[in-house]
Amino acid sequence: HNLTITQGKLFFHYNPKLCLSEIHKMEEVSGTKGRQERNDIALKTNGDQASCENELLKFSYIRTSFDKILLRWEPYWPPDFRDLLGFMLFYKEAPYQNVTEFDGQDACGSNSWTVVDIDPPLRSNDPKSQNHPGWLMRGLKPWTQYAIFVKTLVTFSDERRTYGAKSDIIYVQTDATNPSVPLDPISVSNSSSQIILKWKPPSDPNGNITHYLVFWERQAEDSELFELDYCLKGLKLPSRTWSPPFESEDSQKHNQSEYEDSAGECCSCPKTDSQILKELEESSFRKTFEDYLHNVVFVPRKTSSGTGAEDPRPSRKRRSLGDVGNVTVAVPTVAAFPNTSSTSVPTSPEEHRPFEKVVNKESLVISGLRHFTGYRIELQACNQDTPEERCSVAAYVSARTMPEAKADDIVGPVTHEIFENNVVHLMWQEPKEPNGLIVLYEVSYRRYGDEELHLCVSRKHFALERGCRLRGLSPGNYSVRIRATSLAGNGSWTEPTYFYVTDYLDVPSNIA
């Protein structure tokens, strides 16, 4: 807008934040220059609390790290170098490059900038070799853009010569660093050979998330399962459950009422301010606690030095998902009996873990797994792929695949051998790939016309006998059925096997 004052003059007093240069501009645009008398524009009460600059400061050096910015700028000295009290560095987070010096300023003089007072450097006698002032900004957020400017702080001049310097606002972004852990990993099994893994992005990506790394490792069953005799009275049979499938998407929606109208769909109840505040506090606490764990609990591995020492970490090797089922080394339970199943799973520490690289999504279907087997899954978020990966501390989750139908069934015939004193040795093959492992066998036998009897055969007993022995049988026709019990439950009964026990007292003698 054009402003013209045809008559009258300007009068400025007691404006401590208004620089004289701005008042002189007002004289020019209003056409009143030359009308004012000496005392109409006070030299001592206008701009006496402001830094009124008329020179431009330029930054000469900028260096960044993930949490620091090192700045240096060209030296500046007023005509009387004693008038320079120091520099004021202003900075704040700036997602967009549209910041002005006066953003967030209120009537009390406060604003949204963080201000650092910096002492002037030592003055050199040689004007050509003056030290460049600077400042190291610490405690910054990774991968965050900051708006920065600097200006001088000078003393009051009796001659009211307006001098000083100020830089333009520059924008500097800190470097990326390792992201925080992925949030809320959930693993479920939808079949006997697959596990579905879902997660949420890290709360602090500290860069642009480029991919996720998912490692999985087959877990050995508890050692007590191999040692305890679950045929003993009072000892509860062990059981394991597989990871249940995901709930429906509708039930997972946030901010939804727990109660549904019987007449149909209901609208979600909005969260109160107290609920939102509580969630923010919980989120802040979780982030602080995660940072504490990362800094205190997890110790970084030592990389190899120039002395030739090897990095103890196993090298990563990509495998196809079809090879995942046989990740671990199978060892027989008892070496003397080769027909026992290889369900003991000690994992070799030198073995390469299978892994998958996930790009542009937060889910993965891990296939080719062994049925009813526990897996430990390790999830890392990465925001750099080359020249070397920059990934987060791992988040861990466990899951067990679903049982395989008929995996616990005894394959092959049940054979028998009759000894003296009416002892019958029953023999059968253990299931080759049971659900988890076989903890015991149930032997059901009966003599024709009598009630059915049951015998429990422990895992250890089966390994020693290759089956079991029935003792003290009365003469007669017998039928026997056997079924295995694994961590997933009972298998199917075998087809009945028949044998006849004679009275050993009636056996004919070869003595003449």
Rank of each mutant, 00 (worst) to 15 (best):
A407M: 03
S305D: 08
G467A: 04
V397F: 14
V443F: 01
A263D: 09
N435M: 00
N510Q: 08
R286M: 09
L487D: 08
S367L: 11
F289G: 04
K317A: 11
V480W: 05
R469F: 15
L235V: 09
F298H: 14
F499I: 15
R376V: 06
Q252W: 11
V501L: 06
A394N: 08
S367V: 11
W242V: 14
S223P: 15
G467T: 03
E249Y: 05
D273S: 11
E265S: 07
P354K: 05
K278W: 08
G374S: 07
P338L: 10
G306F: 12
R376A: 05
F215M: 08
A463G: 13
M427Y: 01
P338W: 11
N421Y: 05
F215H: 08
N339W: 11
L455N: 04
R459Q: 12
S203F: 13
S283Q: 09
S363C: 13
R240G: 14
S486W: 00
I482M: 02
P270R: 11
K317W: 04
R400S: 09
L280N: 13
W242E: 09
P312F: 10
L505I: 12
P431I: 00
K357G: 04
G476P: 00
E351Y: 15
S274A: 04
S262I: 15
V327R: 12
C231T: 04
Q256E: 03
R400W: 10
E378P: 01
I418G: 05
R471Y: 15
E221L: 11
R483G: 01
F289L: 09
S251F: 11
C391L: 01
N360A: 11
D385H: 11
G368W: 13
V327E: 09
T340L: 09
P338K: 05
A336H: 14
A399G: 12
L455D: 03
A463W: 10
E388R: 08
T241S: 06
V345Q: 14
G489A: 12
N421P: 15
Y478P: 00
A336C: 14
D291T: 10
A220N: 10
V501H: 03
F246E: 12
I410N: 02
R218D: 05
E452P: 15
A335G: 07
I438V: 13
H352R: 06
H461F: 13
P354N: 06
S344W: 13
G322E: 08
E217R: 13
I438M: 03
T497W: 10
S304M: 15
V501Q: 03
R319M: 09
N421D: 11
T347S: 12
L228F: 12
A335I: 14
E260I: 12
S284E: 05
G322P: 13
E362K: 07
L369S: 01
L437S: 01
S223A: 11
P244D: 13
M427S: 12
W216M: 15
Y448H: 10
L280P: 15
I377C: 07
A484H: 00
S223I: 08
S203C: 15
A488P: 02
K236A: 13
Q384E: 12
V324T: 05
S509Q: 10
P312N: 05
L235Q: 07
K271I: 10
S509L: 10
H371L: 09
E224Y: 14
S304D: 15
A335R: 13
C468H: 09
F226Q: 05
V480S: 02
D261K: 08
I366E: 00
E495A: 08
S458M: 07
L487W: 09
V414L: 08
L225I: 10
H461R: 10
A463I: 09
I438Q: 02
E351S: 15
E420Q: 10
A263Y: 15
G449L: 13
I482Y: 01
V359A: 09
L235N: 07
S367K: 06
G234H: 09
F372E: 03
E378V: 11
C468Q: 06
Y500R: 08
W493H: 00
L440F: 08
P314L: 06
K460V: 14
Y396R: 08
G449V: 00
S223E: 14
N360L: 06
H416Y: 15
K253S: 10
I438P: 02
R313G: 03
R316S: 14
R353N: 13
D408K: 01
S315N: 11
G306T: 12
S509I: 15
Q384K: 02
D385E: 13
K287G: 08
E351Q: 04
K357L: 09
P431T: 03
L470W: 02
N206K: 07
C267K: 09
D506K: 04
Y292I: 05
S257A: 14
S474E: 14
S283A: 10
K361R: 05
I366T: 01
P413K: 12
G325I: 11
E290K: 06
A220R: 07
Q256P: 12
A463Y: 06
P332C: 04
C266K: 12
A394S: 07
Y230R: 10
N360H: 09
L453A: 02
E430H: 13
S257T: 06
E217P: 09
H294T: 03
K361P: 09
V329P: 09
I438E: 01
D291N: 15
T303I: 09
T494D: 00
G374F: 13
E290Y: 04
L280H: 15
Y441N: 01
E356T: 14
R301I: 15
A336W: 06
H211M: 04
I366R: 02
L280F: 13
V324E: 03
D323P: 08
E247T: 08
I377P: 00
P434Y: 03
L228I: 12
D229P: 09
V424N: 00
L228C: 13
T343W: 11
E465I: 08
L505Y: 15
Y445I: 01
P245G: 12
L213M: 14
D250A: 08
D250K: 10
P338F: 11
C267R: 00
A463M: 11
T303Y: 15
H461Q: 11
K233M: 13
T485N: 10
E227L: 11
G207T: 03
S320Q: 08
V439K: 15
V443L: 08
Y396W: 08
Y212V: 11
N383W: 05
V501S: 02
S274E: 06
S344M: 08
N295G: 14
F372M: 08
K357W: 02
G374E: 15
V423Y: 10
D503H: 03
N490M: 05
V480L: 06
A394T: 11
E452A: 12
P475R: 07
D291K: 05
P431V: 05
N477H: 06
L379G: 00
A399I: 10
I276Y: 11
H461N: 07
H211D: 00
Y292T: 07
S341C: 10
P238L: 07
L277T: 04
P431C: 09
D385Q: 11
G368R: 09
H425Y: 11
N360T: 12
G234P: 06
G467Q: 04
N326W: 02
F226L: 09
P475I: 08
